[in-house]
Design a protein around this nucleic acid. Structure first.
Length: 760
RNA sequence: GGAGUUGUAGCUCAGUUGGUUAGAGCGCCUCAUUUACACUGAGGAGGUCACAGGUUCGAGUCCUGUCAACUCCACCA
């Protein structure tokens, strides 16, 4: 062995050996009880980012349970990441001077497909590099045909149950990207925006959105507002920039009498609250801003202008006409923006597919708060509050996206029937009429229907939209297990643990709980573990725009994957954010070198006649033959380290005090690490191992054996080998390398038995 | 507007149900000088546990309040 540990010579060689031997598959422990983790599928559009290195937590759990003899399945996959990927690809297109509008749907889809396949390969190689023992034979991609089939089936069931419906609502729309978003995807920014007090006949009202005034279909006040009682129900004649107009005054309790003058204009097509007021009062939805972000013909001479431009022009003109009473320049408000490009989100009326959430949310609440027989535990527990709070106030979920990259929604519209029905509900579009729209949609499990069941027409048109990515990934646990191997679902579902970042608790985890229970009747996982973010060395969030992203693979190349994994666990309470720390990485790299040199001492520097023994047998006092109570060739019974040897060792000849102590401390460490892993306190485990191996075993015990080396050899080997086994889930590569050099039974540390103590 | 997290050594962080002199890694100081390992070993300095009250025989830990940093949810017309 070389004097200094060189991870580049050790780490690359083991992964293939493990994989080819089938150790990553649960079948290696056919009798074991199932233990399942579904890998949160990384986006297939990019290499891994640093957060993915925290898959270490899952690998630790999987390796631990595998060593405990369980049928441990860690199922890998990747996510097509619909909108995210399309944005990445569009940027990529931009560099070549093209845009997505230069291609038809099929071509674009094919191009993104190829792009994703290439990245997927990179990403898979990176997971291997980090030592993650996922079962590649069961790998899935969210756009695999069998996954798509499952998702379509779910949608059809939702549709049949009345939980998926086509509705006209105000949706969050990015006019730059040309698609709508769910509420969760909108981010809000604080802005200072001028607030105009404008005159509507005898009334004055405050608004920032002058440009939507052409879509006003009422003026509203609070029903109890004494100032305006006499106007309620009246129709006012008002002067506008487009000439005289008439507008009705209504009363609605959604109006805050303390805002502005207590009077608001109601623009159902362009403001969520106004939309609701409009629904209650049966107001017309008059859209004046188009999906291109420009005012339409209803804005008269302002037609064609972008929203901001129009706002300015209108302000100037109103000022001239004396229609602006005053202006508050320092009004602070919050504006929703696209989380990708920062464009202001326009609330626009659009027919989309929505999921009715209240019932689904209720089951998801019950699954965590203990009202269902099988309860989900969230670790750290404080996230329960966030989870409940969101689910309790959930609005219906818009699952339609106007992009091509994703699963096209399996819904067809009969062109004939829709023409007839749209004439019936011509002017006003209300909730009632949008419900009516359900009837013109034919939903299937993916196959194109031959004809309309109502009129028999074969002129059917598929909804061009695709599902929100989270709708499909929300089905990932059962969708994967239903499409890998025939027995998998029955055996491995519900899964054991869902481990992911707290930032997608609502986006993803909560939706998996809802959809999982809805489809299977069972919770999708028993424990939810939420890890923190990995921040840059200065404690700032890593982001491409800040240019402070660190590539985990580079770090692994520099310090070793083992050191990286250990550094992420060591000294950091699970669930907390942590800054990437080079000193800590260095310390863990040093730790690998320490391990290596302990190995060198025990193996290369062993006295000739004490080599190649069976340490376990010696310690257990089961080998009566040799000089030290040792003969390697014959072991009376198979070694069994379910007994740490502690009590048995006490009966041994010699009974060296140091031997006894180190075995006792080893026994303690086994307990600590086992308990730590069972309770998801990973740093307790890594800290205990580091402390024991370095400061107890190496610094004290090994030093103490130097003048009685041969006698201590079995204990040295035994304690070291057991330590490696405990450490293996954390640092798989070096532990395997050293374990192989020590006397051992079995082929690999990966599937050796977890040290199991408990005899004191 | 609602909720959560964090504040402990110079830096980065542990400290689960309250219980001896508050710990680790890195850094710093002294010593060892080729030892299995210098990616080393032995020893050491360094803390008003954010602040103010309270509960308790006993509080870094529990309660109340204050300050500071960060995050999430709702969403303002």
């Amino acid at each position: 062995m070389e004097k200094v540990y060189d991870q580049t010579k050790v780490e690359p060689k083991w992964y293939d050996i493990w994989e080819k031997a089938g150790y990553f598959q649960p079948e290696i422990n056919p009798e074991g009880k199932p233990y399942t983790i579904i890998l949160p599928p990384p986006n297939a559009n990019a290499p891994l980012h640093f957060g993915h290195a925290l898959y270490t937590v899952e690998d630790i759990l999987i390796r631990y349970h595998r060593m405990k003899g369980e049928a441990a399945l860690w199922l890998p996959g990747s996510d097509h990441a619909g909108f995210e990927t399309q944005v990445v690809f569009e940027k990529h297109l931009e560099k070549t001077g093209k845009s997505r509008f230069d291609f038809d749907r099929e071509t674009l889809y094919k191009m993104i497909w190829d792009f994703v396949q290439a990245n997927k390969g990179t990403m898979e190689g990176q997971l291997r590099k980090l030592g993650f023992s996922v079962d590649w034979s069961r790998e899935k991609f969210t756009l695999d045909p069998d996954i798509v089939k499952v998702v379509y089936k779910t949608f059809k069931k939702l549709f049949n149950d009345g939980l998926a419906y086509r509705g006209l609502r105000l949706v969050n729309y990015c006019t730059r990207h040309g698609t709508s978003f769910s509420d969760l995807e909108v981010i809000y920014e604080d802005r200072t925006t001028p607030l105009y007090y404008i005159k509507y006949g005898p009334l004055t009202l405050a608004t920032v959105r002058l440009e939507t005034k052409f879509g006003d279909t009422a003026v509203a006040v609070h029903p109890d507002d004494k100032r305006y009682q006499k106007y309620i129900g009246e129709t006012l004649s008002i002067e506008t920039v487009l000439g005289p107009a008439k507008i009705k005054v209504i009363a609605d309790k959604a109006v805050d009498p303390n805002f502005g003058t207590g009077v608001i204009k109601v623009t159902p097509a362009h403001a969520p609250i106004d939309f609701e007021i409009g629904q209650r009062h049966n107001l017309e939805i008059r859209q004046v801003i188009g999906f291109d972000g420009r005012l339409n013909e209803k804005a008269g001479k302002f037609a064609g202008m972008r929203v901001k431009e129009a706002r300015k022009a209108i302000a100037v003109e109103m000022q001239e006409k004396g229609l602006i009473e005053k202006m508050d320049e320092n009004y602070k408000n919050r504006v929703g923006v696209c989380y990708k490009c920062g464009t202001e989100i326009e609330p626009l009326p659009l027919e989309q597919w929505f999921l009715k959430m209240d019932g689904l949310a209720k089951t998801a609440i019950e699954a965590v708060n203990g009202e269902r027989s099988r309860t989900i535990k969230i670790v750290p527990k404080n996230w329960e509050t966030t989870y409940f709070n969101w689910l309790e106030n959930l609005k219906d979920w818009n699952i339609s996206r106007q992009i091509v990259w994703g699963m096209q929604i399996p819904a067809w519209r009969c062109i004939k029937c829709s023409e007839v029905k749209s004439q019936k509900s011509k002017v006003k579009t209300t909730t009632k009429s949008s419900k009516l729209n359900n009837t013109i949609w034919i939903v299937t499990e993916g196959e194109k229907p031959e004809k309309c069941p109502d009129c028999g027409s074969a002129q059917l048109e598929q909804d061009p939209d695709v599902f929100d990515t989270w709708f499909s990934s929300g089905q990932w646990p059962f969708a994967t297990l239903q499409s890998t191997k025939p027995e998998d679902f029955d055996k491995f579902y519900p899964t054991s643990v869902m481990e992911t970042g707290y930032d997608i608790l609502l986006f993803w985890v909560a939706r998996m709980v809802m959809l999982g229970i809805y489809i299977t009747g069972k919770i999708p996982f028993k424990d939810i573990l939420l890890h923190g973010k990995v921040l840059d060395p200065l404690g700032k969030k890593m982001s491409k725009s800040k240019g402070n992203v660190v590539d985990p693979i580079e770090i692994a190349n520099l310090y070793g994957a083992d050191a990286l994994r250990m550094a992420l666990m060591y000294g950091n309470a699970f669930g907390h954010d942590q800054a990437l720390s080079h000193p800590k990485l260095q310390a863990m790299r040093n730790f690998t070198n320490k391990l290596w040199n302990i190995g060198r001492f025990i193996i290369d520097f062993a006295p000739e006649d004490a080599k190649h023994l069976n340490p376990t047998a010696v310690i257990l006092g089961r080998d009566p033959v040799s000089k030290y109570g040792v003969n390697s060739a014959t072991t009376p019974e198979s070694t069994n380290h379910t007994d740490s040897g502690l009590t048995t060792f006490a009966r041994m000849t010699g009974k060296n005090e140091d031997d006894k102590q180190i075995l006792e401390k080893l026994s303690q460490t086994i307990k600590t690490v086992t308990k730590a892993l069972d309770s998801y306190r990973f740093h307790d485990g890594s800290d205990a191992l580091y402390e024991f191996i370095w400061h107890e075993f190496a610094d004290k015990y090994i030093e103490s054996t130097k003048d009685r080396r041969a006698q201590a050899q079995p204990v040295l080997e035994y304690v070291f080998r057991t330590s490696l086994e405990l450490l293996h889930p954390f640092m798989p590569f070096i532990t395997e390398e050293l374990w192989q050099k020590l006397p051992h039974e079995g082929k690999t540390i990966m599937v050796t038995k977890w040290p199991n103590n408990i005899n004191t």
